[in-house]
Simulated scan of single mutants.
Amino acid sequence: MLSIPDLIRKKRDGGQLTDEEISFIIESVTTKRMQDCQIGAMLMAIWQRGMVAAEIQSLTRQMMLSGEVMRWPDEWKRLMVDKHSTGGVGDKVSLVLAPALAACGCKVPMISGRGLAHTGGTLDKLESIPGFNVQQSAEQVQQKPDHSCKSDGK
């Protein structure tokens, strides 16, 4: 039987976590069975001891699988691009590059944050644009856009 305190101790003492143990930790976090203080202790143990490549891969995979995994249409295969932030303050690239890439026909799914530092996050800025909707369902994200020019005939 897996135990959170035992797993924290294992990592604190320099042990390598197995796929099963990492899966248990992520499931415990997402179902709120792991206390905040235990999450903090595990993160501190990981920060102090580090993780080997196999642990990082497993952690990344389990974090991904803990949420909704989207599948993109096959016809988007060569159109998908990623703009990943390297950090910093101000959204100097995201707010310009993503729409420019989309205007060129690229698909640019992005994960962005809220309430970051004194400038706010990308979502905060986007929500300040009248009519811009950041709350999109998976179906809306995968819809084919209507690029036709609508005119009232005048």
Score class of each variant (00 low, 15 high):
Leu2Asp: 12
Ile4Phe: 05
Ile8Met: 03
Ile8Gly: 00
Lys10Trp: 00
Lys10Gly: 05
Lys11Thr: 01
Arg12Ile: 05
Ile22His: 04
Ile22Phe: 05
Ile22Val: 14
Ile25Tyr: 01
Glu27Asn: 04
Thr31Phe: 07
Lys32Thr: 08
Arg33Gly: 08
Met34Phe: 05
Gln35Glu: 13
Gln38Pro: 01
Gly40Val: 06
Gly40Lys: 04
Leu43His: 02
Met44Asn: 13
Ala45Ser: 13
Trp47Ile: 05
Met51Cys: 03
Ala53Pro: 01
Ala53Ile: 13
Ala54Gly: 04
Ile56Leu: 02
Ser58Tyr: 02
Ser58Arg: 03
Gln62Met: 07
Met64Gly: 05
Gly67Ile: 04
Met70Phe: 07
Glu75Val: 10
Glu75Gln: 09
Trp76Lys: 10
Met80Thr: 01
Asp82Glu: 09
Lys83Trp: 03
Lys83Val: 11
Lys83Gly: 03
His84Val: 14
Val89Arg: 06
Gly90Ser: 10
Asp91Tyr: 01
Val96Arg: 08
Ala98Asn: 05
Ala100Trp: 15
Leu101Ala: 11
Ala103Met: 13
Cys104Trp: 07
Cys104Lys: 15
Gly105Thr: 14
Lys107Arg: 14
Val108Ser: 08
Met110Ile: 14
Arg114Gly: 01
Leu116Tyr: 11
His118Asp: 06
His118Asn: 09
Thr119Ile: 14
Thr119Lys: 08
Thr122Ala: 03
Thr122Asp: 00
Leu126Tyr: 00
Leu126Glu: 09
Leu126Thr: 00
Ser128Phe: 03
Gly131Met: 07
Phe132Asn: 09
Asn133Gln: 10
Val134Leu: 06
Gln136Tyr: 03
Ser137Ile: 08
Ala138Lys: 08
Ala138Ile: 11
Glu139Met: 05
Glu139Phe: 04
Val141Ile: 15
Gln142Glu: 11
Gln142Ile: 13
Gln142Lys: 15
Lys144Trp: 05
Lys144Asn: 02
Lys144Asp: 01
Ser148Gln: 15
Cys149His: 10
Lys150Thr: 12
Lys150Arg: 12
Ser151Asn: 14
